[in-house]
Computed example of a mutant assay.
Amino acid sequence: MANDSYLPIFVLLIGALGFAVAPLALAWLWAKKFSPAKPGQSKNAVYECGLEAKGDAWVQFSPGYYLYAIIFLVFDVEVVFLLPFATAFTHFGIGECLSMLTFLLLLIEGLAWAWQKNVLTWS
């Protein structure tokens, strides 16, 4: 009886693998059957927006962009934690309110640190 309870899981696993592998296999077969390989200099050339590539594609970014993005993500995730607290505020006791106050104080400390280090100034 215990082995029969896993049968639906195995059937769904086989079905999921089939849905993942079948399109890939059909695309590979289609490419082998109907798309002959025609390598050449023009086919292997870099093509983007109808223009020839000029220069190196590597562009060096300032670390300030990344710091600005990380600060944005930290304070964006803050909303995810504050929203449930705000919606259920009336059901909380003093312990929950103190823990949320600690959380907010840590975030304010992080904002003050970022402001002191001039991470938020766009130069």
Rank of each mutant, 00 (worst) to 15 (best):
V77H: 11
K54V: 15
I9R: 02
G93Q: 14
S42R: 05
A31S: 15
S35E: 14
V11Y: 01
K54C: 13
K117G: 02
L107Q: 11
G15K: 02
G40W: 03
W28R: 13
I94R: 03
N3K: 10
I14D: 01
L101I: 08
A27V: 07
G18Q: 01
Y66P: 00
G55D: 12
A114E: 01
I108K: 09
L106C: 09
P8T: 14
A27N: 04
L29P: 01
A53K: 11
I94F: 01
P63T: 13
D4L: 13
C49V: 13
K33C: 05
F75C: 05
A57K: 11
L82A: 15
A2I: 15
L24Y: 10
I70S: 06
I9C: 04
G40C: 06
S99T: 14
I71Y: 02
P23D: 13
L120C: 03
L73V: 12
F81T: 10
E96K: 03
K38L: 10
Y65W: 09
L82I: 14
I9V: 10
Q60A: 12
A69D: 15
V59A: 13
L17P: 00
G15E: 02
L98D: 08
V21F: 08
C97H: 14
K43D: 06
L24E: 08
V119I: 09
L13I: 13
S62R: 11
M1V: 15
A45E: 06
H91L: 09
Y65N: 04
T87W: 08
M100Y: 12
P23C: 08
G93D: 06
A22C: 07
T87P: 00
Y6C: 03
K117E: 06
G110K: 00
A27C: 08
F19S: 14
I71E: 10
V119P: 00
Y68P: 00
G40N: 06
S42N: 14
F92C: 02
G93S: 10
F89A: 03
P36Y: 12
S35T: 08
L29H: 02
P23T: 11
L82Y: 14
F81V: 09
C49A: 12
W58Q: 10
A2W: 09
E52F: 01
L26M: 03
W30M: 03
A57S: 11
V119H: 09
I71H: 09
V74A: 08
A20D: 02
L105H: 00
F75K: 01
D56A: 12
E96N: 09
A22S: 06
S123G: 11
A16E: 02
P36W: 04
V79I: 15
L73R: 09
P63W: 06
K54A: 10
C49S: 09
P63D: 14
L120F: 04
V74Q: 07
V119D: 01
V79T: 15
T102F: 15
L73G: 08
I9A: 10
